[in-house]
Amino acid sequence: MTIASMRGVVKRYGSYVALDSIDLDIHAGEIIGLLGPNGAGKTTLIGTLTGMRPFDHGTVELFGQSKHPFSHENKEKIGLVTQEITIFEELTAKENLQFFAGVYGLKGEVRKQKVREVLEFVGLSDQANKLPTKFSGGMKRRLNIACALTHSPSFLIMDEPTVGIDPQSRNYILEGVKRLRDRGTTILYTTHYIEEIEAIASRVIIMDQGQIIKEGTPADLIQTIQHEEKVSFEVTDPERIPEGSLEKIAGVRRVLTAGNDITVISDAGSGNLDRMLSIIKEHTGVLGIQTERPNLEDVFFTLTGRQLRDKGEEQ
């Protein structure tokens, strides 16, 4: 079942094209990882998909409705976790959730029960009656997520939900996303953290400069660029290995030596690690071996020639 789809969506700000002919389908039960550098158009895509931003061309369909996709009826099925922390600092964690639950029409005991459940889900039960001003960044992020869950949305949009938080809170959030998927929630997750996408996404959409430049499962995307393998050996004395002996192995493309490290680049799937190791061990001692597999960062780099994250950007 298709939850949301976009066909030929174009969004311009003056002469700047923020979204360029976007075609996208989101199916029930998926976790879509929307990956792209800052300014790629991820937030604009979310804005147009949810009706927050009008678009110049194309169609958007939500829950099978293309005529009035942004109706209140459809909004009740969607949860939005905003990039900014949008909780009310003057209300306690519980009151924040009661506010949003009330807006979605939950009343009385049902509302109390739902608020309790969601607080438990994000691990803030013991902080229920505290004001967020006393919370850490990670706790605020979790409350921010909780606010989008009070009405049990079937489609959850998470716009960079882990920006600026500690690894522990990040892991907690990622585990929560997986648990939501297990409950049947469809999730659109935007980030520029590769490791998050690799950990949770069933399908990845890579965006750059307002365009979807590639989509598929993480494994498929990596496979498309996996033309070579890289193995690094740390050895005791690299000069004792006869020159050209490694290059002669079938599939080996290049051998690079730097200090005690020898890096061998060979064709993907050539399966020559055993042979390389036996040649090296014949002449010198091996201190360590490291294999490098391409990741989605490499996919992005191959597709655009640029890094996903700027140097110095927060980790």
Binding site: G47, T50, G51, M52, H72, E73, K75, E76, I78, L80, T82, E84, T86, F100, V103, Y104, C147, A148, D159
Partner: peptide, 12 residues
């Protein structure tokens, strides 16, 4: 500003 996106998504 800050809360705008979340508020726009509410069914009110």
């Amino acid at each position: 500003t800050e809360h705008r996106a979340r508020m726009q998504m509410l069914p009110i």
